[in-house]
Amino acid sequence: MKRLRSVRVRLLVLGLFPLVALLAPLLARERTTDPSVLARLVTPVPFDPNATDLDARFRPPDAEHLLGTDDLGRDVLSRLVHGARVSVGVGLAAAALAFFAGTLLGSAAGAFGPRADRAVLFATGVVQAFPALVLVAAGAALAPPSPFTAAILIALTGWPEVARLVRAEALRLSASPHVEAARAAGASRRRVLFVHVFPGAISPALATVPYILGGAVLLEASLSFLGLGAPPPPPPGDEPWPMPARA
């Protein structure tokens, strides 16, 4: 029962983010002239995320700016709400892609015999031994940085972990008595894969999803830092290789 409640809390939090992200343009925008309570309720964050005010930089949180303002005097909460759109979007897309590709290839490797297994092992091996930094930097140089590129790059680095977990589990399952029994009973390969192996193999991989998602958001935050490289002469007055603003 306790466990169920904690799952529910997690689901609620997980669900809230996409909702906020989805509704960002409504929730956080420049307040119209209407100062009524209703307007405040409909638009709880009455600031455009990009509205700058150089005379209101680094404001501490107060009733007006609930989370204060940033280095350009922009409302931090409004930027968070809008920023969630990109981060959550990229994270979800990347995690979904990685999970889909990983489980499919992983269980195929486990269920379709040695040749498929070797092919998948080869692919995961290559990707896992591939320095992520090279992939990200070269990717950013080849395709201009965008949320779409970021999602693809993150999924590319993320899927082998899922695939390996699923494969290991699938191997164990396909050697297990009930799968052997199913095979003996003449079940087709597809049936073995989807009915007997896949459902069981997914569960260890599911545990990694939050990590892919979290890792995706982190990596997305560092992408600007990692992916853009360093100018040899720093701009006047700046340090070379500055850290991302608030990653």
Partner: peptide
């Protein structure tokens, strides 16, 4: 077997 993937990561 579960540690294999972790190791590689």
């Amino acid at each position: 077997p579960a540690f294999t993937g972790l190791c590689a990561a």
